[in-house]
């Protein structure tokens, strides 16, 4: 414990390093995944090609990618930029599938009626499809945030400073408290970013809170009443599904 008290500054500095490494990939992966996911959702051929290449990308182990990437991109292996690019690739790999699935979950009837009232396919995408897929996208982005924060620590092994440096340093010097402090700080940072995303979601999608309580309601009466008696309740099922 005494190690933590006397090294608060160090932990704080590494936390800031960690934020610089992990926040840009989270934002970038969302921005890149939306067009890619939309493309994957549009045509059958592009869906197969995009989703399978993204799946392969996700299968690449992190440490080898950190080493191979500089040769391809031309950055230095020890630069934070290299790590940010690699983490963005993992975020995109996770997020593209989520975007494609989220857009596919939008009810075709809703999209047809949007076209019917005069939305162009461009504005229908931004104003109807994307907001309706929002809760799914948010859930995916939360997974991206948590895994990015956790993955960023691996960079410490090749010399990119982050909270992971507390692991390598603590291991080399045999200070258990330093490693534990690093783990706790990483988990706390992941939870903070996750919480920030949840708040952002509430701000941008105020309708989700109302509909989530509505989703719970139809679930309870179903085992009690036989299905043929409840056709009138079907219109109330939320469109977000």
């Amino acid at each position: 414990m005494s190690w933590i008290w006397s090294n608060g500054d160090l932990i704080w500095d590494r936390t800031l390093d960690h934020l610089v490494l992990s926040v840009p990939p989270i934002i970038l992966s969302f921005l890149l995944a939306v067009p890619l996911g939309a493309l994957a959702n549009r045509y059958r051929a592009s869906r197969g090609a995009i989703l399978s290449s993204v799946g392969l990308l996700y299968a690449i182990p992190s440490l080898p990618l950190f080493i191979v990437l500089p040769v391809i991109v031309g950055t230095s292996a020890r630069s934070p930029l290299n790590l940010i690019i690699a983490l963005t690739l993992y975020g995109v790999a996770l997020m593209v599938r989520v975007v494609a699935d989220g857009l596919a979950s939008v009810d075709p009837d809703v999209r047809q009626s949007a076209a019917g009232v005069g939305f162009s396919s461009w504005s229908e995408f931004w104003q109807v499809e994307l907001p309706l897929a929002g809760p799914v996208l948010l859930a995916g982005l939360r997974v991206v945030a948590v895994s990015t924060v956790s993955l960023a620590t691996v960079g410490a092994v090749i010399g990119v400073q982050s909270l992971g440096s507390l692991f390598t340093d603590g291991f080399q010097r045999g200070i258990q408290a330093e490693i534990i402090a690093g783990i706790v700080a990483t988990v706390v940072l992941a939870l903070v970013l996750d919480g920030a995303l949840v708040l952002l979601g509430r701000l941008l999608m105020p309708w989700t809170r109302k509909s989530s309580s509505r989703v719970m309601l139809p679930l309870t009466p179903t085992p009690l009443t036989p299905t043929p008696l409840t056709p009138t309740t079907t219109p109330t099922t939320p469109v977000t599904r």
Partner: peptide, 18 residues
């Protein structure tokens, strides 16, 4: 869910020290 947030390198070094 909680295990997703735990950094693998941290767990490895911690177990190795103990």
């Amino acid at each position: 869910g909680a295990f997703r947030a735990i950094p693998t390198l941290g767990l490895l070094t911690l177990v190795a020290l103990s």
